[in-house]
């Protein structure tokens, strides 16, 4: 099976030089469903940031989609990110755009025709049960609804890799279940690789998954 992510002796640190992840080695195969857990401040989100190129490795090697991220150029990083779907803890929706335009963003970046993109957005809005909210702006929606918009945006362009940072952190049970169903669906039906940072792994999940746990800067795989 193809490896989507390969980390070798990976160390991560912010500008204050305090090491967050220390010489970690792991790999993730194409089509894997991966959970990353750990205590608050353990470096889960930091690791995710490094996977989508927002934080460069301090030491070691990190290869995502066959591209070494340590010395990646801006244009290559853009190209790589066009094949990713990212769900952020704080949603990161463009407030001055309607929810349709937010969902359409990765489609337009990937060069989809506007009418094709519009059809796709309509389908996704139905999937995330927000078709009754068309024309609204993110701040007019609840937190759970905003996260569902962010989820629809991450799925819009059928990415090969979805990364989600605590996607159900503050959500009600209905929205949480909907998001897990969407992630499961993407993994089962489209064989999309899914990486989720979370505190709690849901119990009723219908996928085989890998589980990485971060503790004191070290990453352990839990079987």
């Amino acid at each position: 099976m193809d490896k989507v992510i390969i980390a070798q002796d990976l160390s991560l640190a912010y500008s204050n030089n305090e090491t967050i992840i220390n010489k970690a080695s792991f790999s993730i195969n194409s089509g894997d469903f991966v959970f990353i857990t750990g205590a608050s401040g353990s470096g889960k989100s930091t690791l995710l940031k490094s996977l989508y190129g927002a934080l460069k490795p301090k030491q070691g090697s990190l290869v995502v989609g066959g591209v070494e991220l340590k010395a990646i150029s801006r244009s290559k990083l853009n190209f790589l990110r066009r094949h990713m779907g990212i769900v952020f803890q704080d949603y990161k929706l463009v407030k001055e755009w309607t929810i349709e335009k937010n969902i359409m963003l990765p489609l337009l970046i990937n060069g989809y025709l506007k009418n094709v993109a519009q059809d796709q957005v309509e389908k996704l809005l139905k999937h995330v049960r927000l078709n009754h909210q068309i024309g609204k702006y993110p701040l007019e929606l609840s937190g759970g609804e905003q996260q569902r918009v962010a989820m629809a945006r991450a799925l819009a362009h059928n990415p090969i890799l979805i990364m989600a940072d605590e996607p159900t952190g503050n959500l009600d049970e209905y929205s949480s279940q909907l998001i897990w169903n969407l992630l499961e669906g993407a993994n089962n039906q489209l064989k999309t690789t899914v990486i989720v940072v979370t505190h709690n792994i849901p119990k009723n999940l219908n996928v085989d998954y890998k589980h990485f746990h971060i503790e004191y800067g070290n990453i352990h795989e839990i079987s």
Binding site: Y52, A54, R74, S75, L77, N78, F79, L80, R81, R82, H83, M84, I86, K92, L93, V94, K95, E96, W97, L105, P106, I109, N110, R153
Partner: peptide, 13 residues
């Protein structure tokens, strides 16, 4: 904010 979000999805400058 908007430019950063677009950048996270791979939009060119």
């Amino acid at each position: 904010e908007r430019m950063s979000i677009m950048g996270l999805f791979g939009a060119a400058l």
